[in-house]
């Protein structure tokens, strides 16, 4: 059972649809017991970091999530909330990944458009992390964001947009992806399939 955490940050539909397409059994919930019992946990999220963090806090999820031991995937804002802090709304986040989320000013400085919207190359570190199994080096994933996590020892993939940022991070059972695998065609589906094969 995959628990998709519902903390009222808007549209979970595309993440739900993506796991349904893979035939996964899912539950959309903010209930602590249901999350603890799930084999896999997904923290999606769209919107603004500080208000999303506040929504996690009011549900006690900010203290629950870092204690999880099953494979846990943060997508986009979900990844950002797993970092130490975010410059978006000056938010203190969960601190699972030892890095901070910053506005993508290096991109703006070289005249690139922000938000970073569209398909961009993702370069995985070697040896290939299990989440990237059967995904070609440099394969494109779909992005929509204006803030990004700085590189850190937990960075397992990078994308370069003005400057390299953490496209994906992993710390123990926690994986974060800045791109949207649920919208990245067959490559994205492969990544989600890889996630489902990870064992606690």
């Amino acid at each position: 059972m995959v628990a998709i955490i519902d903390y009222d940050t808007g549209n979970l539909r595309s993440v739900i649809n993506a796991f349904n397409r893979l035939g996964a059994e899912i539950i959309v919930t903010a209930d602590h017991q249901q999350i603890l019992q799930a084999t896999h946990v997904v923290l999606p999220g769209v919107g603004e970091a500080s208000s999303a963090m506040e929504k996690l806090r009011t549900r006690g999820l900010d203290t629950l999530i870092p204690t999880l031991t099953q494979p846990t995937l943060g997508i986009c804002i979900g990844l950002q909330l797993m970092c130490k802090s975010s410059a978006e709304g000056d938010a203190k986040c969960m601190g699972i990944f030892p890095t901070e989320v910053r506005f993508m000013s290096p991109a703006a400085e070289v005249g690139l458009k922000i938000p970073h919207v569209g398909w961009d190359n993702v370069n995985w570190t070697l040896p290939e992390p299990p989440i990237a199994k059967d995904i070609p080096e440099g394969a494109h994933f779909y992005y929509v964001h204006s803030y990004a996590a700085a590189l850190c020892p937990d960075t397992i993939a990078t994308t370069d947009y003005g400057a390299p940022f953490s496209a994906a991070l992993q710390h123990r059972n926690f994986i974060g992806v800045q791109f949207h695998p649920e919208k990245s065609g067959p490559i994205g589906e492969q990544l989600l399939r890889n996630f489902l094969t990870l064992k606690p």
Binding site: L112, H116, G118, W119, D120, N121, N123, T125, L126, P127, P129, G138, H140, L151, P153, T155, I156, T158, D160, Y161, P164, Q170
Partner: peptide, 20 residues
């Protein structure tokens, strides 16, 4: 899954690649 030395340099090579 650390970033290898070769990847450190590859960041600069990939600077040339832009959004599709």
């Amino acid at each position: 899954f650390f970033i290898s030395h070769s990847h450190y340099f590859s960041f600069f090579i990939f600077n040339l690649i832009v959004l599709a």
